[in-house]
Amino acid sequence: MEQKERKQEWRFAIANREALIGCGLALFNFVWWFGFAYGLGSKPPEEYTYVMGFPAWIFYSLILGTLVMFVLVALVVKFFLKDISLVDEEETEKDEVTKG
């Protein structure tokens, strides 16, 4: 029993860590989005510089920001998330609500 509890805590610890990674990603996403949008977009439109046909703030915040998140999410999933079993060891068969 004690051994089993330790094992479950280990799975929960991974889940907790991944939830924190999620918060980190969202924070990074927000800072990038906010920084470029209001950093470059707050001057009058006639002073805007253009990157690949888009005003710079739109390009960096919206277009590039979205692409950066795609890559970052893929890297995080590949290198930081762990494969764990979602069912408890003894129960390899499907669990069902209507049982019993």
Binding site: Q8, R11, F12, I14, A15, N16, E18, A19, G22, C23, I84, L86, V87
Partner: peptide
């Protein structure tokens, strides 16, 4: 956020 903990 809900992640594996919610699923387990």
């Amino acid at each position: 956020i809900l992640g594996k903990k919610f699923a387990i």
